[in-house]
Computed example of a mutant assay.
Amino acid sequence: MTDAIARPALDADALASALLAPRGPLARLDVVATSGSTNADLVAAASRTPDAWPAPSLLVADHQTSGKGRAGRTWETPPRAALTSSLLVSPGVPGDRLPWLPLLAGLAVVRALRSVTGLRAVLKWPNDVLLPAADGVDVAGWGPYRKAVGILVEGLAGGRAVVGVGVNVTQTADELPVPSATSLALSGAATTDRATLLVAQVGELVRILDAWRGAAGDARAARQPDDGPDLASAVADVCVTVGSRVTVDLVDATGLEGDAYGLGAGGELLVRADDGTRHAVVAGDVRHVRTGGAATLGG
């Protein structure tokens, strides 16, 4: 029964203690009971009074009623069943390197989910985070994975951006809109505590963006203090799209099918078509025909 699921409200005071400077990374944190769309609300507020929203600032809603996705898609989740937040950032990188932003946000979410929930989260290019299907059954376009997280990046004046993240946390199967979706609870997460996840997610994202900014937006040169791989390689390592057979619906209404073999210097998805031609996909809807293979970085 869905009414037996524990879905406590977020504790604004506890989140402020963990996330606001000087203890945490944020300059401002607003926790609201309800938002139509945290992205739409934050974009509007930061555009109206930019000085009141220094970067990084976070808006998080206990319940989002009209979430925004790519291509104008909208959705609604049961109250307190999801974690919906939007982070205002100032990337400070050249414009041609901004396409890395949703991929780096995805990397941050993947790392947070893996560390907090114990689940083997992966990234689907360019802005979805997936979890292995609990039933192991393939779904067309997604293979043996299900979507648990959506990411939406929107630009603002002055080079700033809003990074929206929506995580399915405790939804039951009948509360999800499509068979290709899942939630942390359905996937067997070690915890579904939204506050714990939010603190980890924000921390990872701010650290990753600091390293990216420090390398002037060059994801192949950006490294974090732990001396791990560069950020471009780290993204490729968790991106299940790379190494997969894919079909891509391009923005010009044409299609492309082939093997995704790497990521370009600007985060483009590199696809080798069946006729041998190579394509750098900047934007498009990707469907996985077959997953697997090795991730590489291309020119």
Results as ranks from 00 to 15, higher is better:
G72V: 00
G67K: 00
R278A: 08
T241Q: 14
L101D: 10
A189K: 02
V251F: 15
A82G: 14
L270C: 07
A190G: 13
L205N: 06
V139E: 06
T196E: 13
A9M: 05
L29D: 11
G267Q: 06
R245D: 13
V149L: 02
A44L: 12
L197Q: 10
G92V: 12
L103V: 08
V238C: 07
D226T: 00
D135R: 00
A55S: 12
S115W: 11
L250W: 13
G292Q: 14
A6M: 04
R7M: 04
R70S: 09
G217W: 00
Y145N: 07
K147L: 10
G158S: 03
R146E: 08
S115V: 03
W212S: 05
L123A: 14
G293M: 09
R213Y: 07
V235W: 09
A18Q: 12
I5E: 15
P102H: 05
G214V: 07
P8Q: 08
A236Q: 01
A280V: 01
P126Q: 13
R194S: 07
L250H: 09
V202G: 10
V43D: 14
V206F: 05
L29E: 11
I208G: 05
L104E: 06
A18R: 09
V162F: 06
P225G: 13
V238I: 04
K147F: 08
D230K: 00
I151M: 05
A283M: 10
A55W: 06
G159Y: 01
D128K: 02
W125Y: 03
R97T: 00
A112C: 01
R120V: 08
T241K: 02
V109I: 13
